[in-house]
């Protein structure tokens, strides 16, 4: 276990060093994060200028969902997706063999080997939005609500991570999947809205088929003290099920791997 932590530390340091080489790009990315956050907030501002309540969500609680959205997005785009994009490249040119040769679990090696530290701006944005939302509401969440909210944040991140692993596993069969990654990002974009504002087919799709609700809506409800015990357990259960499934698919994919170079 300590060895895994050490490896992780080294990988983090090298990525940071790389990112800091391109300082101008780092600042520009920070500025871009601000632009995107502003664009994401705009429809919400337009909506709540006219209505005080939409499907049981008022302005502060909808802001919490957006905060979760940017939090999960920061972790995904800062840690997971750059790593997995690198994996796809390695599968194509055969360099993945070297990863398999190492005496460390391959999924660990490819899941967190490449970072984009500039995504920290998204994460800071998420914390600022959440803080503002609670000031707007007038009273802070209890310690229990914050703890549960954070635990569900981790569960949501792992649920999204599992989706990414499933996509990455597909790379063993189809090789080119840049577009698949864009598609995944496009689907995750729906997570910025509370799932209850959608109706009918949309809500079923986002709750069960592509569980974006698990990533933002349910954790936000926990933070707001609205999530029932049953829904909490279902969210954790759903996240664990997704991790197990993605692990199984990953193992099957590795067995199927026949290297590009030899």
């Amino acid at each position: 276990m300590t060895r895994y932590l050490q490896i992780w530390g080294v990988q983090l340091r090298t990525s940071l060093a790389t990112a800091m080489t391109y300082r101008a790009s780092f600042i520009l990315d920070g500025f871009m994060s601000l632009v995107w956050i502003a664009l994401a907030l705009l429809p919400l501002i337009v909506l709540f200028d006219q209505r005080s309540m939409v499907s049981g969500w008022d302005r502060p609680s909808a802001l919490i969902v957006i905060a979760y959205f940017f939090g999960v997005k920061a972790v995904m785009e800062g840690i997971v997706s750059p790593s997995l994009i690198q994996l796809v490249e390695r599968i194509r040119n055969g360099a993945f063999d070297y990863v398999l040769l190492k005496p460390v679990d391959a999924q660990f090696m490819i899941s967190a080997c490449n970072y984009e530290p500039e995504k920290i701006f998204d994460f800071i944005g998420a914390i600022v939005i959440a803080t503002y939302a609670f000031i707007l509401r007038g009273y802070p969440p209890t310690v229990g609500q914050v703890a549960l909210g954070l635990a569900l944040f981790v569960a949501g991140v792992f649920a999204m991570y599992s989706l990414w692993i499933l996509c990455a596993a597909a790379a063993f069969w189809v090789v080119r999947l840049d577009n698949l990654i864009y598609l995944l990002q496009a689907i995750f974009d729906t997570a910025r809205w509370p799932v209850q504002v959608f109706r009918g087919v949309w809500r079923i799709l986002f709750t069960f088929i592509i569980p974006v609700a698990v990533m933002t809506t349910f954790p936000a409800m926990a933070m707001l003290g609205r999530l029932s015990a049953r829904a909490t357990l279902a969210t954790f259960g759903g996240a664990i099920a997704m991790i197990v499934i993605s692990r199984l698919v990953w193992r099957a994919a590795i067995r199927n791997y026949t290297s590009a170079s030899s």
Binding site: L47, Y182, A186, D189, V197
Partner: peptide, 15 residues
């Protein structure tokens, strides 16, 4: 991948 208009469609029709 251009799902944004569809998301907005779902959102605003329900609003």
């Amino acid at each position: 991948t251009s799902t944004m208009p569809l998301i907005m469609l779902g959102l605003w029709t329900s609003v």
